[in-house]
Design a protein around this nucleic acid. Structure first.
Lengths: 342, 342
DNA sequence: TTGTATGCGTTATCAC
DNA sequence: GTGATAACGCATACAA
């Protein structure tokens, strides 16, 4: 049953030539005659030859494998990024190995090592929310292994990054609410101030400033930004009796939780309270009313990250200067923020 | 910069022993003394040794890599399955390579070959909706490469499968609607009758039969089951003036489309028309009203698929009899199907 | 308990 | 334009 797999030696023997010629022919080496190339390709097909990337990788010292580490694959944003990476990588005959850190540093280190053992040619990573140790990544750079950070990044590591302009996203979202006539805009942000949340927050404050609306710290709610957290924040908000006419949440999940609570309390969205989320998760178009949100172009981000990786890879000779790619976000306006009386 | 990587030979030289001893020590071979094991492990750490899985894989003829092919990674169901596979695989020191077929046979073949070139030890696959050619998979079995089908399967290939009881899911969904007092239940199904849709349809018909409700073919709508398709079907349904009091859709996406159209036409959900979807996509709990749907336990399915793979792998000696693992679905009852006047 | 020798399948270097 | 040979890093059969 388990028929031995055909190797270049089998092809060589069959054609009365040597394995090196076969190897060259298969790699389309210009010094090989068209005749033998044709013969080799034909025989390869006949014998059902399947190249052994493992052996080639060992010999060449490169595996044609890219490792990706994300907090979780089970999130539209991340799986779309992966999709983008795959598109670019597959075209260049690279495969993608995916691993999840589950927002845990130890897990991240284990997973990183596993990828290194598999001898990936480089690593793309979106670091977890609560990560505070980065030595394992600095080690990577010292070893000269291409590393690209995307979305959730840190400046503690000197390497190429791909991010969206979260500041701009935050600014546009807030500005939009202001233009809808909102003046008391609540902001939901993350307890742990990773770059992306910091920037969205900054965009929010800057927009208020630009429109001469005083910033009120009591309108800022910090949480873990899951659906349940959004519910909790909204309940606290209502209990506090603070007046507010809009919520800009740095997460789509949290804002859906808030929407539920508002509805349960017979508060009308968007007439009484306008809502804007962040990320353009697929479900945002399915809520009622549909949610206004900020698109982060995840597929494009994945493509950009992959391209960044190949740039590092191909510039291996001279010292590479880390690139920072900043994508523009887009405000997607839906019913949850459109005041009818405007 | 690019410091040569340490190998078992470096460790051996340092300790004045041979590479084979080092190899055995690292693999915890019982014939090696505790003393040398300790020395080797220590030196490995000192020299920052990173095992080269590539070389080991080449030598052993197994790569510790599992290939997964899904129609798209960007779908909660599939990314959850992958998550489940990873959980089981990582524990056994296996990594997962993910590829997408994008519902296209040619793509699927290319992707399968790429995985084979990477010398994966086995393949887990959920075949696309419109696949009609399976030779590439039959080839796999002939070669003795472990293959497990999950969710979207076919009986054309004689190998282990993991599925949920789609028939039961369809039956329960329909039965639930009947118990809510519905009598004219529309069914949305897929144009292309892959197993899973056939079974859900069969469950629907069987439930009707059991409750003596005549089956009416004009209530069955076939489409591609995306959101837009659901909208279209609902519009056709309304235009046809057919009376109906419920929709059981074999896809969550299609039923959300229908919900939108119903709302636009001031038809009340669930009072006028009750709705039930299928898959428990995350967004189903975010719609208003929240959608009743059928959970397929994707993580468990991934775990089961991985376990099936390891069973095949470990039984390599004797002829393996394909196993069929059938998971039980669960009806998740939410507001979209709960008639208040009951 | 450890060492020696060999090969996994490929590519690179040198030779002709 | 093609051949011979070695090497990538590791694991194993066989010796000792």
């Amino acid at each position: 049953m388990k028929t031995k797999k055909t190797t270049i030696h089998d092809i060589a023997k069959e054609l009365n030539i040597t394995a090196s010629t076969v190897s060259r022919a298969l790699n389309n080496n210009p010094r090989i005659s068209e005749a033998t190339k044709k013969a080799v390709l034909g025989m390869a097909k006949d014998l059902n030859y399947q190249p052994n990337n493992l052996a080639a990788a060992l010999r060449k010292g490169k595996s044609q494998l890219i490792g990706i580490i994300v907090p979780t694959i089970n999130r539209s944003f991340f799986s779309s990024v992966i999709r983008g990476v795959e598109e670019v990588a597959n075209k260049l005959n690279y495969r993608v190995i995916v691993s999840q850190s589950n927002e845990d540093v130890d897990n991240e280190i284990v997973t990183l090592n596993a990828l290194l053992n598999a001898r990936v040619d480089g690593i793309l990573v979106s670091i977890g929310k609560n990560m505070d140790r980065f030595e394992h990544y600095q080690e990577l750079i010292k070893k000269g292994i291409p590393l690209v950070l995307f979305d959730r990044t840190t400046n503690e590591i000197s390497t190429s990054q791909v991010i969206i302009d979260d500041y701009l996203g935050g600014f546009q979202a807030t500005q939009h609410l202001i233009k809808q006539g909102c003046r008391k805009i609540v902001h939901f942000t993350n307890v742990n101030q990773v770059n992306i949340y910091k920037e969205r927050y900054r965009g929010y404050r800057e927009a208020l400033k630009e429109y001469d609306i005083p910033f009120d710290e009591s309108l800022v709610y910090k949480s873990n930004m899951q659906l349940a957290d959004g519910r909790e924040c909204a309940e606290k908000l209502l209990a506090s009796k603070t007046a507010f006419d809009a919520i800009f949440s740095a997460s789509d999940y949290a804002v859906v939780g808030a929407m539920q609570v508002l509805k349960e309390n017979k508060i009308k969205v968007p007439d009484d309270v306008a809502l804007v989320g962040f990320s353009n998760e697929p479900f945002t178009s399915f809520t009622d009313p549909a949610l206004t949100t900020v698109s982060q172009f995840p597929i494009e981000m994945g493509q950009a990250a992959a391209e960044s990786f190949f740039e590092i890879l191909n510039s291996k000779k001279k010292k590479f200067i880390p690139q920072k790619t900043v994508l523009q976000p887009e405000l997607i306006i839906r019913a949850s923020s459109l005041k009818l009386d405007k």
